[in-house]
Design a protein around this nucleic acid. Structure first.
Lengths: 156, 156
DNA sequence: CCCATGTCGTTAGCCATGCTTATTAGCTAT
DNA sequence: ATAGCTAATAAGCATGGCTAACGACATGGG
C-alpha cells in the first residue's frame, strides 16, 4: 500500500496546463457520459428525471423554481419534466403554505422506490467497470469525483 | 504545498466500495457534462456534431454506419446529424468505390476549421474553472481523466 | 443465371428535453 | 390601489434519441 502511495505521488509531481487538462477531461466526461446514458434501460427514467427525484429526496419539498435552479434548466423545461413525473405517479404537488403562486413538490413512495432501483440499474455498468480497477485507481476517481462535483456546482 | 499533499494522502487512505464510487462518479459526470453542454454558445455545434467531425478528421473517410457505431447511436440518428452537418457545409459525401449502397463522408475545410474553433470554445469554461484549482487537484483530475478515458473505450 | 436473403442508408413518426416568448395568478411595495 | 415583480405554465421550435419500414444494392445457393 505504501509503495502505491509513493508511486502516485511520483505521478502527482507531473504538472499539467489547465487548457490541456480541460481538453482531456472534457473528452473523458463526454465519452463516459454517453456510455452511462446508453446503459439506461429503454422505457425507464432519464438521468434528469432521476436527478429531480433525488433532489426531492435529499431536499424535501421543493418548488419548481428551486428544482430548475438546482438542475440548471429554465423553468418551462422543469415544468415539462415535472408533468411527466406526476403523470407517472412518482411525484405529488401540495400548495405552498404562505404563497399561493408556488407549489411544493415531493416524491411519492412509488417515486422513492423507483429512483432507488433506477439509480442502481444506471450505476450497474459503471460499478462493474470500477471493480476491475486497482484500489489506487478507485481512490483517484473518488477524489476526482469530489472535485468535479464541487466545480459543477460553482456559480460560474 | 506539502500540507496539501499530506491532506490528499489522508483522503486517499480511505477505501471506497465500487458501488458507492459509481454513484458519486456518475453524479459528478452528469453534472459536469450538463455544465459543459450549456457552456456551448447558442447556434453553434453540439457535442455530437463535433464528435462526428472529429471522428472524420481522425479516421479519414467513413461511412454513416461506421460513424453510428463509433458514436454508439442507431443509423437513423446518425442520418439526421449528417444531414444537419451537410446543410451547414461542414461535411461532404463521395460515392463508395466498390459498393454503391455505401457513402463515404469527410469533413470539408470549413468543417475542419469550425471543429477546431468549437472545441476551443467548449473547453473555455472548463479551463477557466480548472485554473482556480490547486496544482494537486489538477493532477488528480489529470490521472482521473486518463482512467476514465480508458474505461469509456472498453468494450463492455 | 436467378432469386432469396442480408445489408446500407434513408424516411416517417414518436418521444424527451432544451430553449424563448407570452400569459395568468398572486405577491409586494410605493 | 395599483404598478411592477415573481411563480408557474402554455405554446411553439429545434435537436437528438428510438423503432418500423422501405428501396437500392450485394452476395451466395440452387
Amino acid at each position: 500500500m505504501l509503495n502505491i502511495v509513493t508511486e502516485r505521488m511520483a505521478v502527482m509531481s507531473k504538472r499539467i496546463a489547465p487548457a490541456a487538462l480541460a481538453a482531456m477531461l472534457g473528452d473523458a466526461i463526454s465519452r463516459l457520459g454517453r456510455r452511462q446514458r446508453q446503459a439506461r434501460p429503454v422505457g425507464e427514467l432519464t438521468q434528469n428525471q432521476i436527478s429531480v427525484l433525488t433532489s426531492l429526496e435529499l431536499g424535501g419539498a421543493l418548488t419548481p423554481r428551486e428544482l430548475a435552479d438546482a438542475e440548471r434548466v429554465q423553468p418551462p423545461t422543469m415544468t415539462k419534466v415535472l408533468a411527466r413525473l406526476e403523470e407517472l405517479g412518482l411525484l405529488q404537488r401540495t400548495p405552498h403554505p404562505t404563497d399561493r403562486r408556488q407549489v411544493l413538490l415531493s416524491a411519492t413512495s412509488a417515486g422513492h422506490d423507483i429512483v432507488v432501483e433506477q439509480r442502481r440499474a444506471k450505476d450497474e455498468w459503471l460499478t462493474r467497470v470500477l471493480t476491475r480497477l486497482t484500489p489506487a485507481e478507485r481512490q483517484i476517481l473518488c477524489q476526482a469525483a469530489e472535485i468535479m462535483s464541487r466545480i459543477a456546482r460553482e456559480g460560474d
